[in-house]
Nucleic acid binder design. Structure first.
Length: 777
DNA sequence: CAGTGAGCGAGCTTCCGCTTGACTT
């Protein structure tokens, strides 16, 4: 029996704190929120001032029972949830749910988990801040109202099971709008001129000096004419300018910046980063990983200092205090940093090691001196032209924090060429004559806006104050689970470009090709995502506004400051909002993103595309009074409502093709989810990739494929039983298994499959397989 | 696991933020 019960939010935190407090204190955790709005019946009493109806969350029932018991036994209950809006609400819910008596309940807060900070907190308890709690209730109720009033509109007007929300709908909007920018983007080309000059270095060897023309030419005529001029020109150095510059380290990691850097440097997905970080946190190796604070504790700053000074020396160290400036930050925690900064690496999985190292470097670098650089710019005159070549180089005078860590950027590295930073230029003098070895004019194209990656979407959301550190990863999953967004790889297309080159007094023109627009792990909107987005913007423009969250946050802050009453804030929002809901239900047509593509030249029937029950489809013809029915065909992966052409849509109706008959049964060819296939006797055989074309393949080839498949299946068949024709023992990719009525059953390792009897097989079927997890219908 | 695109229409779907397991292959 303990005198004192301390309740924090996470078990890992509880473990650490218990060590500081000694045996009079039992420290336990609530695992976050313990109550939430009732899920059925809206969970809000709309007739009674938006009174929330709270229930203990199903997965927290056990915890609540346990906490009740412990609270009863303790003399004093210390509620130590985070010092932000959500944390304060957790404290209040705990007080209410556990029915804690005010005289034995104390609310405490601390921002860093050190013995001093915690003891100080114990000495300075305070009452629960009702204003802050009310701000959280306003936030919670608003989100419920938006989500649960708008989603049903979508079920009626677009498709069942869809969803809308303050955060997810804006996230989808960002991706949809970026996609449209890319679709409508017209790239312009210009000619970039680069030159390689040959100069002697200090040892008399010939080295290259690479330079780029300051101006780009718009037309190929200009570019060609310029190169012709260069053929007879002389080049000399007009000036050499050296400029010092410096670079400053980035702030320590927050959730969002950690996700971005782990994505850029380690190729981690956002959720991967979080689960690896969670393991490091639970092992006590890093501080809490869901934070928007860049603040380091004084202890951390001091350890970093001695670490830097002892390994690199005094001049590499600089104390820096960082301040958070992102919208909506609530700063309940420290930045993400190693718990013990003197530990450069940790044991664990490869991923854990890599992520830890990244966090360690970022933390150390944040307390290091600026890097000092010197940038040199050399201008090169052309005797018969006003144009100038420019060569730039950059040397590091003092590496400072770069010794440890350098932040990456999202920019695609397209400008590889003469102006690479970090390059050292060869020694040259003013007025020195240069010999040109090669001058090239290369056609370059303006870049489409980049698609979002998971991490760059998180960055954008954070900048707008949308979402919280604990929700960035779930947001990304939600929009994908709802089918609004897909993360994909898409192949690029070949593009031709011109290149003029001048070498040895010879001007050559070449047409070259490059691959452009290839994407990997980028976020694309689906057709449903686009249709839903347009519908929401049309009827709920307020919710869809990028600054909606920021606007309501201002009001929540006023509630937190005691300047406004939370139900009034909600009411002010709800009255006009609900009108929009009513209006949308009344006015809007069923929306399916229909687009008329034109008429089929053969039949004159109209061709259109829209979203159907099973996804996007193309339609040929219309339902008429004479009983004529239209033809339908699903769009294929890679085809989209907004971009499909009439020709592509017409192609869809060419399949399935009838090839004829084989063994008195029809042979048809079509394209399915796994590519082109031949269908015969209700069996499917894939066409061979790169060999067969579903539009031209003939019956004899199809038969060949069917026979090959049969031969393969025969080889896979180990045993059948006459009494039970549905039951077969087969040899699959992972060894032998039992197949019965379209379900497969694992055979335990080590058993000889050939010797299994019918009884053995039936036993196997009874025992397995366990029902699959997840809510698959 | 590749087809389907309507029809009787039951009963269901859905939000954001705070936390950690319990699940397979």
């Amino acid at each position: 029996m303990h005198e004192n019960l301390v309740i924090v939010e996470s078990p890992a935190k509880a473990k650490t704190i218990e060590k500081f407090l000694g045996k009079d204190y039992l420290v336990t955790s609530s695992m976050g929120h313990i109550r939430d709005l009732e899920k059925k019946d809206f969970g809000i009493d709309m007739e009674n001032n938006y009174e929330p109806k709270y229930v203990v969350s199903p997965d927290k029932k056990k915890i609540v029972t346990e906490l009740k018991k412990l609270a009863k036994e303790a003399k004093t209950v210390w509620i130590a949830s985070d010092e932000d809006r959500e944390g304060e609400a957790i404290a209040w819910h705990l007080k209410e749910t556990l029915k804690l008596k005010p005289e034995k309940t104390k609310r405490i807060v601390f921002h860093e988990i050190t013995k001093d900070a915690i003891l100080r907190a114990i000495e300075n308890p305070r009452p629960i801040d009702d204003n802050l709690v009310n701000a959280q209730q306003a936030r919670r109720v608003l989100d419920r109202i938006v989500g649960f009033e708008v989603s049903p509109v979508l079920w009626k007007k677009v498709k069942p099971s869809l969803s809308a929300g303050r955060v997810q709908s804006v996230a989808v909007r960002l991706i949809v709008e970026r996609e449209r920018e890319i679709i409508s983007f017209k790239s312009k080309s210009s000619f970039r001129v680069t030159a390689v000059f040959l100069v002697p270095d200090l040892d008399g060897n010939t080295v290259e000096l690479k330079a780029e023309l300051k101006r780009r030419f718009e037309t190929k005529e200009e570019a060609e004419a310029f190169l012709e001029k260069c053929n007879t020109a002389e080049f000399n150095i007009a000036d050499i300018v050296k400029k010092p510059s410096k670079r400053t380290p980035a702030a320590p990691f927050t959730t969002s910046t950690l996700q971005q850097e782990a994505s850029r440097k380690l190729g981690f997905s956002v959720s991967q980063t979080m689960s690896v970080a969670q393991r490091l946190y639970e092992a006590g190796k890093i501080t809490y990983m869901r934070t928007d604070s860049v603040n380091l504790s004084s202890l951390a700053i001091n350890t970093a200092k001695s670490q830097i000074i002892s390994s690199l020396g005094e001049k590499y160290h600089k104390v820096r205090q960082y301040k958070t400036n992102s919208k909506g930050a609530q700063e309940a925690h420290e930045a993400i940093r190693p718990t013990y900064i003197d530990k450069e690496s940790v044991s664990g999985s490869n991923q854990e090691k890599k992520l830890y190292e990244l966090i360690w470097k970022r933390t150390i670098a944040s307390q290091m001196a600026d890097a000092e650089l010197e940038r040199t710019t050399i201008n090169i005159n052309i005797s018969n032209s006003q144009e100038t070549f420019q060569a730039t180089g950059e040397i590091i005078v003092f590496d400072g924090f770069l010794r440890v860590y350098m932040e990456s950027t999202d920019l695609e590295d397209d400008n590889v060429g003469a102006t690479v930073s970090g390059t050292i230029l060869p020694p040259v003098k003013l007025n020195q004559q240069l010999r040109a070895d090669l001058i090239e004019a290369t056609q370059r194209f303006t870049q489409k806006p980049p698609r979002y990656t998971e991490a760059s979407l998180v960055k954008k959301l954070e900048e707008q104050g949308i979402g919280r550190p604990s929700t960035y990863a779930p947001i990304i999953t939600t929009v994908q689970n709802r089918g609004y967004v897909v993360k994909e790889e898409r192949p690029g297309v070949e593009r031709e470009y011109l290149q003029f080159s001048l070498k040895n007094n010879e001007l050559k023109k070449a047409v070259k090709t490059e691959i452009t627009g290839a994407e990997k792990n980028k976020l694309f909107p689906t057709d449903v995502g686009m249709v839903v987005n347009d519908f929401l913007i049309k009827y709920f423009d307020q919710i869809m506004d990028l600054s909606f969250t920021a606007n309501v946050e201002i009001e929540f802050d006023e509630v937190a400051d005691g300047k406004r009453v939370w139900n009034e804030v909600i009411d002010e929002f709800y009255q006009p909002f609900h009108q929009h809901v009513e209006n949308a239900l009344e006015v809007s047509e069923r929306t399916n993103g229909e687009r008329i593509l034109g008429d089929d030249p053969k039949t004159g029937k109209p061709v259109s595309v829209k979203i159907g029950r099973f996804g996007p489809l193309a339609q040929l013809g219309e339902t008429t009074d004479e009983g004529e029915k239209p033809q339908f065909a699903s769009l294929r992966s890679g085809q989209h409502l907004e971009t499909i052409t009439l020709e592509e849509a017409l192609d869809l109706f060419k399949l399935p093709r009838d090839l004829g008959e084989y063994e008195d049964k029809k042979v048809t060819v079509a394209i399915g989810r796994f590519g082109p296939y031949v269908r015969h006797d209700n069996k499917f055989v894939s066409l061979e990739k790169g060999v067969d074309d579903p539009y031209t393949v003939q019956l004899d080839r199809a038969i060949e494929l069917i026979e090959a498949k049969r031969e393969k299946d025969r080889k896979a068949l180990i045993k059948t039983f006459d009494e039970e024709p549905d039951l077969r023992i087969l040899n699959g990719r992972w060894g032998p298994y039992v197949s019965y009525k379209k379900k497969n059953y694992k055979i335990a390792k080590g058993t000889e499959a050939e010797k299994l009897t019918l009884e053995d097989c039936k036993k196997i079927i009874e025992e397995g397989p366990k029902p699959k997890r997840g809510k698959k219908k």
